[in-house]
Simulated scan of single mutants.
Amino acid sequence: MISARIFSAALGATLLFATTGCKSTPPPKPIEQLTTEEAHGYAVFQAHCAQCHRDRTDGKLVGPPLLGVTKKQYLPSGAPANDERMSATILHGRGMMPAQPLDDQELADVLKYLHTL
């Protein structure tokens, strides 16, 4: 007979898998389907962010991957995953991430691009 402790642990593991194992990040929007603004944001990302962050895969470079970043409740830092917080992080930096000197249009477009991931 299975002890209550083993049964309880197995049930907990099953429930954990059922609630977290099935959640996957949807694939990013294909590059050839990006709008003009999103494509410009992709170019800005490549110029300012890609050396430290992966965007279309979940592999880590220097900084955390950004695949699905806007589809999550929180950023890897624990801050809310919203445009206001992402804008502040991009423009002012945080921790090891340096500030990025983007103009208003570049910032708006890179945020649009991040929403496609």
Rank of each mutant, 00 (worst) to 15 (best):
T35N: 09
T35R: 02
T36Q: 13
T36H: 07
T36N: 07
E37A: 13
E37L: 13
E38H: 08
E38L: 11
A39L: 15
A39C: 08
A39P: 06
A39N: 08
H40T: 00
H40E: 07
G41M: 08
Y42R: 15
Y42I: 04
Y42C: 07
A43K: 15
V44A: 09
Q46K: 15
H48G: 08
H48S: 09
C49V: 00
C49D: 00
A50D: 12
A50R: 07
Q51N: 12
C52A: 12
C52L: 09
C52G: 12
C52Q: 06
C52Y: 13
H53P: 15
H53M: 05
H53N: 14
R54F: 06
D55V: 06
T57L: 05
T57V: 01
T57D: 15
D58A: 07
G59I: 00
K60M: 03
K60Y: 09
K60A: 11
G63K: 10
G63I: 00
P64Y: 03
P64K: 08
P64W: 01
P65W: 02
L67W: 11
L67A: 03
G68I: 00
V69H: 14
V69F: 01
V69P: 12
T70L: 07
T70V: 03
K71T: 01
K71G: 14
K71A: 01
K72P: 06
K72R: 12
K72W: 03
Q73R: 04
L75S: 12
L75P: 14
L75K: 13
S77T: 15
G78L: 06
G78K: 13
A79P: 08
A79V: 00
A79M: 10
P80K: 01
P80A: 12
P80F: 04
A81H: 15
A81C: 14
N82Y: 04
E84S: 15
E84G: 09
E84K: 15
E84W: 13
E84A: 14
M86K: 05
S87K: 09
S87L: 00
A88F: 13
A88I: 07
I90S: 10
I90D: 06
I90N: 09
L91V: 05
H92Y: 10
H92M: 03
G93T: 02
R94M: 05
R94H: 09
R94F: 07
G95W: 08
M96R: 11
M97A: 05
M97Y: 08
P98M: 03
P98C: 00
A99P: 15
A99D: 04
Q100D: 02
Q100S: 00
P101H: 10
L102C: 04
L102Y: 10
D103K: 12
D103C: 13
D103I: 14
Q105M: 07
Q105A: 10
E106W: 07
L107N: 13
L107T: 02
L107W: 08
A108W: 10
D109A: 08
D109T: 08
V110F: 06
V110A: 06
V110C: 03
L111H: 11
L111Q: 14
L111F: 15
K112P: 01
K112Q: 12
K112C: 07
K112L: 07
Y113M: 11
L114Y: 03
L114K: 11
H115M: 10
H115I: 11
T116N: 13
